[in-house]
Measured scan of single mutants.
Amino acid sequence: HNLTITQGKLFFHYNPKLCLSEIHKMEEVSGTKGRQERNDIALKTNGDQASCENELLKFSYIRTSFDKILLRWEPYWPPDFRDLLGFMLFYKEAPYQNVTEFDGQDACGSNSWTVVDIDPPLRSNDPKSQNHPGWLMRGLKPWTQYAIFVKTLVTFSDERRTYGAKSDIIYVQTDATNPSVPLDPISVSNSSSQIILKWKPPSDPNGNITHYLVFWERQAEDSELFELDYCLKGLKLPSRTWSPPFESEDSQKHNQSEYEDSAGECCSCPKTDSQILKELEESSFRKTFEDYLHNVVFVPRKTSSGTGAEDPRPSRKRRSLGDVGNVTVAVPTVAAFPNTSSTSVPTSPEEHRPFEKVVNKESLVISGLRHFTGYRIELQACNQDTPEERCSVAAYVSARTMPEAKADDIVGPVTHEIFENNVVHLMWQEPKEPNGLIVLYEVSYRRYGDEELHLCVSRKHFALERGCRLRGLSPGNYSVRIRATSLAGNGSWTEPTYFYVTDYLDVPSNIA
């Protein structure tokens, strides 16, 4: 807008934040220059609390790290170098490059900038070799853009010569660093050979998330399962459950009422301010606690030095998902009996873990797994792929695949051998790939016309006998059925096997 004052003059007093240069501009645009008398524009009460600059400061050096910015700028000295009290560095987070010096300023003089007072450097006698002032900004957020400017702080001049310097606002972004852990990993099994893994992005990506790394490792069953005799009275049979499938998407929606109208769909109840505040506090606490764990609990591995020492970490090797089922080394339970199943799973520490690289999504279907087997899954978020990966501390989750139908069934015939004193040795093959492992066998036998009897055969007993022995049988026709019990439950009964026990007292003698 054009402003013209045809008559009258300007009068400025007691404006401590208004620089004289701005008042002189007002004289020019209003056409009143030359009308004012000496005392109409006070030299001592206008701009006496402001830094009124008329020179431009330029930054000469900028260096960044993930949490620091090192700045240096060209030296500046007023005509009387004693008038320079120091520099004021202003900075704040700036997602967009549209910041002005006066953003967030209120009537009390406060604003949204963080201000650092910096002492002037030592003055050199040689004007050509003056030290460049600077400042190291610490405690910054990774991968965050900051708006920065600097200006001088000078003393009051009796001659009211307006001098000083100020830089333009520059924008500097800190470097990326390792992201925080992925949030809320959930693993479920939808079949006997697959596990579905879902997660949420890290709360602090500290860069642009480029991919996720998912490692999985087959877990050995508890050692007590191999040692305890679950045929003993009072000892509860062990059981394991597989990871249940995901709930429906509708039930997972946030901010939804727990109660549904019987007449149909209901609208979600909005969260109160107290609920939102509580969630923010919980989120802040979780982030602080995660940072504490990362800094205190997890110790970084030592990389190899120039002395030739090897990095103890196993090298990563990509495998196809079809090879995942046989990740671990199978060892027989008892070496003397080769027909026992290889369900003991000690994992070799030198073995390469299978892994998958996930790009542009937060889910993965891990296939080719062994049925009813526990897996430990390790999830890392990465925001750099080359020249070397920059990934987060791992988040861990466990899951067990679903049982395989008929995996616990005894394959092959049940054979028998009759000894003296009416002892019958029953023999059968253990299931080759049971659900988890076989903890015991149930032997059901009966003599024709009598009630059915049951015998429990422990895992250890089966390994020693290759089956079991029935003792003290009365003469007669017998039928026997056997079924295995694994961590997933009972298998199917075998087809009945028949044998006849004679009275050993009636056996004919070869003595003449």
Rank of each mutant, 00 (worst) to 15 (best):
G207W: 00
S239R: 14
V439Y: 09
R376H: 14
Y504D: 04
V443A: 13
T241W: 14
Y396I: 02
E279S: 03
A220N: 11
V457H: 03
G234V: 09
S392R: 00
T340N: 12
D229S: 07
P413T: 08
S315F: 13
A463T: 12
D409P: 05
G436F: 12
D291F: 01
P403W: 07
V345D: 07
S444G: 11
R376E: 03
S262M: 11
G325I: 09
S257W: 06
T210Y: 05
R481P: 00
S283G: 06
P312V: 07
S320E: 14
L235Y: 07
H454I: 15
W493Y: 12
P387Y: 05
I366E: 01
S268I: 15
H211L: 09
L440N: 08
Q219P: 12
R316S: 10
S274K: 07
A405V: 13
N435I: 00
R318N: 05
S458Q: 10
I410L: 07
K460P: 13
Y375M: 13
N295C: 15
N490K: 11
E420P: 15
K432E: 14
A488L: 07
A309Y: 09
L235P: 10
T502G: 09
G491H: 05
E465L: 11
E495A: 14
Y230L: 12
V443L: 09
E389G: 07
I276A: 04
D229Q: 11
I410T: 03
S474E: 11
E247W: 13
D409S: 14
C231H: 00
P205M: 12
D291E: 03
T241E: 06
Y500V: 11
F462T: 06
R481A: 14
Y498N: 15
A488N: 02
C269L: 04
S243V: 11
Q384T: 06
L235Q: 05
R353A: 02
S223N: 13
I438K: 01
T241L: 11
K233M: 12
K361P: 11
G476Q: 00
V358F: 11
S262E: 03
R390F: 04
V331Q: 15
V411R: 08
P270R: 05
V324G: 11
P349M: 04
E495S: 14
V299Y: 14
K302D: 11
R471N: 05
G476H: 01
V359L: 09
E227D: 08
T343H: 09
L505C: 04
S444Q: 07
R316H: 06
L379S: 03
F246E: 10
P475N: 14
C391F: 03
K287V: 03
A395H: 12
Y478L: 01
L470K: 01
L453N: 14
S479A: 14
Y500W: 14
D229H: 07
S203T: 09
R319K: 09
P270M: 04
V358P: 12
V334M: 13
A484T: 15
V397G: 12
Y375C: 03
H352S: 08
P205V: 02
G207S: 02
P244V: 06
R376M: 07
R469Y: 07
L426F: 10
L225D: 03
S341R: 10
K236Q: 03
R466T: 07
E310N: 10
V507H: 03
E258D: 11
V334C: 04
S367V: 07
N422T: 11
Y292F: 08
T307F: 10
S304D: 11
E356Q: 10
N435H: 11
V457E: 04
D261S: 10
R301V: 06
R218V: 10
C382F: 01
P508L: 03
N326A: 09
R318W: 14
S363L: 11
N339E: 11
F355Q: 09
R313I: 08
T373G: 06
E420G: 15
S239W: 14
T485L: 15
S203Y: 15
P300F: 06
V324S: 04
P475A: 09
V501K: 08
C266I: 09
A336F: 15
T386A: 14
S251N: 11
T303L: 05
S251D: 13
E417M: 09
V414F: 10
V299I: 13
W216M: 11
D204S: 06
Y504R: 13
S392A: 01
F246W: 09
Q380I: 14
V439H: 03
Y375T: 06
S479Y: 12
C267L: 02
E247Q: 11
R471K: 04
P434C: 07
Y445V: 12
A463Y: 06
C456W: 00
A336T: 10
E282P: 02
H371W: 05
N435F: 01
D250T: 12
P431G: 04
P354K: 13
P434S: 09
F462M: 11
Q252F: 14
N255T: 07
E279V: 09
L464R: 08
F289A: 01
E442L: 05
L437Y: 13
S342N: 11
E430L: 03
E388S: 04
G374K: 09
I410N: 06
K361A: 12
A394C: 08
R471Y: 11
F462V: 11
L213P: 01
G467P: 01
E495M: 02
D250M: 10
L453V: 12
A407R: 11
R218N: 06
Q429L: 08
D311E: 14
H371K: 05
Y230E: 03
P245Q: 11
S367F: 05
E281S: 06
N255K: 06
P431C: 03
R400I: 06
W242R: 06
P270K: 12
E281N: 02
S344M: 10
S203N: 13
S509R: 11
A407V: 12
S268Y: 04
R370T: 14
G449S: 08
T340R: 13
V297M: 09
E221T: 03
Y498M: 14
K233E: 04
W216H: 06
E465F: 14
S486C: 02
